[in-house]
């Protein structure tokens, strides 16, 4: 390689490769290290509407080395009405649908399909009143996901989970006015805890949690049965521990 072509190469691939030409002169240099492939992670992500997902690109070079998210990556979305992607690989979900997120680096390209879903599409709508609760925290797993996606602090998340669990118990275990009262008090406590942790804007979240928890006809009717059992009761304010 001539000195001239070496300069051109440096211009193309940047200073990291400049050492390969350090000897200079007319002496023949080893083969230049060039990028050979590019892989995007996570693969095939599903991003909830309105949320973001950070992608990373790992570039493999001809000498076997890899570099994660080197500078010089160019990101693009196949359909920006569904998802956009920033220069750093941050995907923002705009509307439900499927897109491909592409990335290029020094003439080679890679990419991954990505899907944008609304939170509603991920809700459990099984016939079971209780629904799946793999982590056994008293809250349906999809409601865990909903709460996790609300952008709350850990203490606020805990408050939302307390409220969600109380709604679930009220739906599942209310058989008379006595169980109705006890269950109602826990709903009240959960809401008070949310108010304590989030301020007066908590109702925006408590309403979402209620709507997503009682999201089938059977669940709505079971909740109405709870309401039936507490009508005509006088409720004091909560005493004792608010946030469990």
């Amino acid at each position: 390689m001539s000195r001239r072509s070496c300069y051109l190469f440096i211009l193309t691939l940047g200073s990291a490769l400049a050492t390969s030409c350090a000897g200079g002169g007319s002496k023949r240099s080893p083969s230049p290290v060039v990028p050979t492939s590019i892989q995007v992670t996570p693969e095939s992500p599903t991003v909830l509407l309105g949320k973001t997902q950070q992608l990373a690109a790992t570039v493999r070079f001809s000498d076997g080395s890899t570099q994660t998210s080197p500078s010089g990556l160019t990101w693009a979305s196949s359909n920006t009405t569904i998802a956009t992607v920033s220069g750093t690989g941050l995907v923002t979900a705009v509307a439900p649908g499927s897109v491909t997120i592409n990335v290029t680096f020094s003439g080679i390209s890679g990419g991954t399909p990505a899907k944008v879903e609304t939170i509603l599409a991920t809700l459990d709508r099984s016939a079971s009143l209780s629904g799946p609760d793999a982590n056994n925290n008293g809250v349906r797993d999809d409601i865990d996901q909903v709460i996790g996606g609300l952008g709350l602090s850990p203490a606020q998340t805990q408050a939302a989970l307390q409220y969600a669990a109380a709604l679930q118990v009220a739906m599942l275990t209310t058989t008379d006015s006595n169980s109705g009262f006890n269950n109602a008090v826990e709903i009240q406590r959960g809401q008070d805890c949310m108010a304590q942790q989030m301020g007066l804007g908590y109702t925006k979240y408590s309403r979402q949690i209620r709507a997503f928890t009682f999201n089938t006809q059977a669940r709505v009717m079971a909740y109405i049965n709870f309401e039936h059992n507490i009508g005509g009761t006088v409720f004091p304010q909560i005493t004792g521990t608010i946030c469990k």
Partner: peptide, 24 residues
């Protein structure tokens, strides 16, 4: 069908949940 979460918008007179569904 099966979109019972929308029922709660009716009770509250809000469009909180509807807004999430409208995009679909």
């Amino acid at each position: 069908a099966n979109r019972w979460e929308l029922f709660w918008d009716l009770i509250d007179g809000t469009t909180d949940i509807l807004t999430l569904v409208l995009v679909e």
